[in-house]
């Protein structure tokens, strides 16, 4: 785990309320794997908002940089989205678990909103590992205005996204699930709103395809000390109802462990 005050080296508004930021943080970039996240904070001495750091998935790791896809949600993500070039933030990471591909050959990635982030890292990360797999990426948003530009996705991730919007103003009309014939997939990975993750899980379960989901919960430390980001899960050994920490036991969980 690395702690570093890292400057913003690139910043771009990529869609409505959505920003692409890159930080100079070579050690984190080197270690980060898809699904893992960094805590983005401002240190303990500034007690404006945010005081606590905010979790964000590592979305790219080119040339010693950590790329993040930030959607403005409240005051903290707004502050992060407004960072100026050269301004430093305190990064802590990489944290959490990653998607485990095992020996899957055909991997279906289903992203909702900024749940796209880990799947932007995935293709190049696999290349770096010398690992081959056929990736198919479905990316859904509610409306066209917030869709992350497909050319930029291609540039960052080297992958084509199959885009779905509920209003049909970009890509196909409907939700990502309308595009999901699991055809041939031997692994499903997903990240996005909980309602979508639940639907993905039942699809995968029906098809008998293994499924891993990256989930979110409020966090303070990101490293297991505050025990704040617990979500209800099933203990894989005992079958008991327990809680698991999204920061250290997740954010990526085998779908069947989640107790929703």
């Amino acid at each position: 785990m690395i702690r570093s005050w890292s400057p913003v080296v690139a910043r771009e508004r990529v869609a409505e309320e959505t920003f692409w930021l890159e930080f100079d943080a070579p050690e984190i970039a080197e270690q980060a794997a898809p699904g893992q996240f960094v805590m983005v904070g401002f240190g303990a001495s500034s007690w404006g908002t945010p005081f606590l750091p905010r979790p964000n998935s590592v979305a790219a790791a080119p040339d010693g940089r950590v790329g993040l896809l930030i959607r403005v949600y409240g005051a903290g993500s707004r502050r992060i989205s407004e960072l100026a070039l050269g301004e430093r933030v305190l990064l802590l990471g990489p944290l959490g678990t990653r998607f485990e591909l095992g020996d899957a050959r055909n991997v279906l990635c289903i992203a909702g909103g900024v749940g796209l982030a880990p799947f932007l890292l995935l293709p190049r990360w696999l290349d770096r590992q010398g690992r081959e797999a056929n990736l198919r990426l479905l990316y859904g948003e509610r409306v066209g205005a917030v869709v992350f530009n497909p050319e930029k996705i291609q540039e960052i991730a080297g992958i084509e996204a199959d885009i779905w919007t509920e209003d049909g103003s970009r890509g196909s009309r409907g939700t990502v699930l309308d595009g999901t014939g699991l055809d041939g997939a031997d692994l499903v990975l997903s990240c996005g709103p909980t309602a979508m993750l639940k639907a993905v899980r039942s699809l995968a379960r029906t098809a008998g395809v293994p499924c891993q989901l990256a989930v979110e919960e409020h966090m303070a430390c990101g490293m297991g000390t505050c025990i704040g980001c617990a979500i209800p899960t099933i203990d894989p050994e005992t079958g008991e109802d327990v809680y698991s920490l999204v920061c250290t036991e997740g954010p990526v969980f085998a779908a069947e462990r989640l107790r929703w």
Binding site: G48, F51, E217, H218, M219, A220, I227
Partner: peptide, 16 residues
């Protein structure tokens, strides 16, 4: 422990 959500930021601090 308690069900989620367990923590959130509050002005100059947090609730847990």
């Amino acid at each position: 422990g308690n069900p989620p959500t367990r923590i959130s930021e509050t002005p100059a601090g947090m609730i847990n």
